[in-house]
Design a protein around this nucleic acid. Structure first.
Lengths: 144, 144
DNA sequence: ATAAAACATAAAGCTAACTCGAGGTCAAGA
DNA sequence: TCTTGACCTCGAGTTAGCTTTATGTTTTAT
């Protein structure tokens, strides 16, 4: 199965410009061309793109993603490196989720605070909550 | 309790430049000055900074964070707006976590793939895993 | 046959969020 | 007192990741 750049853009929810940019940056080394120079994407490229999107979604830079792609091109002797990279990114992701959970707690706290402030019609009645937030901040519950 | 810009930078793990940048952008409206012009940070500023860091960690832009700060300055008649903003950011965060969990599944899958490839000394033996990944991609398990 | 749509390159432009440098002022310790 | 280090402003520079523009070619539908 092959696809035009427009079809891929549609399928992957990226712009055509972005796909060409990725290609130029060397992130799509397997994309072929027609005689007249048009790009032909295969399922393999779709799969690579989905991996790229996956790594990008976890905050990896395109530069580091290119390293991964380069290793893919080099062949199976780079499997250990790729394993290391993916394992490391897994760690990054787990840390991110821990951090986000903390932020979610903090945001829930803020949410409740404002909700009560609205219900009681005053922020003053929420002094205890405000103090609690301050304590969390100062004791470092929410940061570092 | 008051702090110099250097102390705050240390405490909040930001650079002095970044703090001045935030101040210039209007994100720290309560910071006072000495007669000679040096910034004096109070606990209130530390608390606001921690809120800023919290919102930033969930991907909110400084522009949107400034809106929140502006509402804080305006006083309690903006509590409903602040509630909406925080509630919305909570939703953003929950979506993010769902997405990240998917990415984590995908990364775990990749991780296992490479691990087995190393154990068996060949990527060829992992064809079934590769196919499984392709299926997930094509059936949209990992994207959209 | 032809007009519109889709594709191509190359280079410039943009935005966010810093980051750095120059040049100067102020404050705290020996 | 003097020197060293922390602070100040202002403006320019940087980086990532696109995005737009200009110009031109190739398909495709009528």
């Amino acid at each position: 199965m092959t696809y035009t750049i427009g079809e891929v853009a549609e399928k992957m929810d990226l712009t055509i410009h972005t796909l060409r940019y990725y290609d130029k940056e060397g992130l799509l080394p397997f994309v072929e061309r027609t005689e007249s120079g048009r790009r032909i994407f295969s399922d393999r490229d779709i799969i690579l793109l989905s991996t790229i999107e996956c790594l990008k979604a976890t905050g990896m830079s395109l530069k580091d993603i290119k390293q991964y792609v380069d290793w893919c091109v080099e062949g199976k002797e780079t499997v250990p490196q790729r394993y290391e990279l993916v394992k490391n990114q897994k760690k990054v992701l787990e840390d991110q989720m821990t951090q986000l959970q903390k932020m979610l707690d903090a945001i829930n706290f803020k949410c409740d605070f404002y909700k009560r402030a609205i219900e009681t019609g005053s922020t003053d009645l929420c002094d205890s909550e405000r103090k609690e937030w301050a304590d969390k901040v100062i004791n470092g519950t929410f940061n570092r």
